[in-house]
Design a protein around this nucleic acid. Structure first.
Lengths: 154, 154
DNA sequence: GCAGGATAGTTTCATCTGAAACAATTGCAA
DNA sequence: TTGCAATTGTTTCAGATGAAACTATCCTGC
């Protein structure tokens, strides 16, 4: 058909690309808060973050809570066992699972990083007014739901 | 100080985490559009996307336009040269740089993927009304600016 | 009980990744 | 000029990654 054109894909305006760049910029900055100072990686930080509440969880529960794959969690855990950040206790009832808890050392790291991470979040959203922050929250929630739906369906 | 508590960091509500999960969900789904069918990777798709406009660019310009690191672009380019998706012509004036263009084969891939990618974007934003889409656009732009500012400053 | 399948977690393997070192070329300044 | 820093892009190396195979344990139906 004459005059038929490919729709223009302007990468800089393409939502998946923009989200990826924004997320990378932010993750990289946040990672600087703990990578050099505490020598922990992003997966390890996520494990600390979910165990920081004081709850004890299995590796599988950590995976679910952090949206990481089982293999990533497994590797983070083995590093953290070596560096003494967490404690692993094989379950009595079910010896496949093991309960994980932060050690005092792990908790100390959480106590130091959490305020820094929250302070970063505050600084980055400081360019938004309260209504915009609330809207961002709503929009991200809606998009995540739809992204999940589109991820599984064709 | 008695009663002093660490501020609670709820990972599921932490903006950097939410953005990371959303971005990963979306990227993974979009990548499925071209990974299996065309055998190209995310970096290669980004190169195709920016060269798809018809412009010819150097590797450095591609890096800037795609927010990728030089080394990533270099590797994507060498794969694409092998698979015949792009053409590289060393500059006359400056023989360090080389101009890159899509071949017919590369352009054909762009012509097939671009509509699929845009259709995905339409589907994912279909859960938002037009005002929300516009708001999302504004919010992401503001956040990216601030993220960039916080990335460079201490 | 016990065979077959499900579940929790680990390991293997091939690939990807980023930092830093490197090579090639250009521009600038003495 | 000519030497030195800056720019463009590539390669190297060590570690990270994900898919799939694997181990160990548990559960279910017979």
């Amino acid at each position: 058909m004459a005059g038929m054109t490919t729709p223009d894909l302007n990468l800089a305006r393409f939502l998946p690309y923009r989200l990826s760049v924004l997320s990378n910029t932010i993750s990289h900055t946040v990672a600087r808060l703990y990578e050099t100072r505490f020598g922990i990686t992003i997966p390890e930080w996520r494990v600390i973050a979910v165990l920081g509440s004081g709850r004890t969880m299995s590796a599988g529960e950590v995976a679910a809570a952090t949206a990481m794959e089982r293999v990533q969690v497994s590797r983070a855990i083995s590093r953290m066992l070596e560096s003494g950040l967490i404690l692993r206790e094989t379950g009595d009832r079910d010896r496949r699972r093991a309960d994980l808890t932060l050690t005092a050392k792990g908790r100390a790291i959480y106590t130091e990083i959490a305020p820094l991470a929250l302070a970063y979040e505050t600084r980055i959203t400081s360019v938004l007014d309260p209504a915009e922050v609330e809207m961002l929250d709503r929009l991200l929630a809606k998009l995540q739901l739809q992204a999940d739906a589109l991820a599984t369906s064709p």
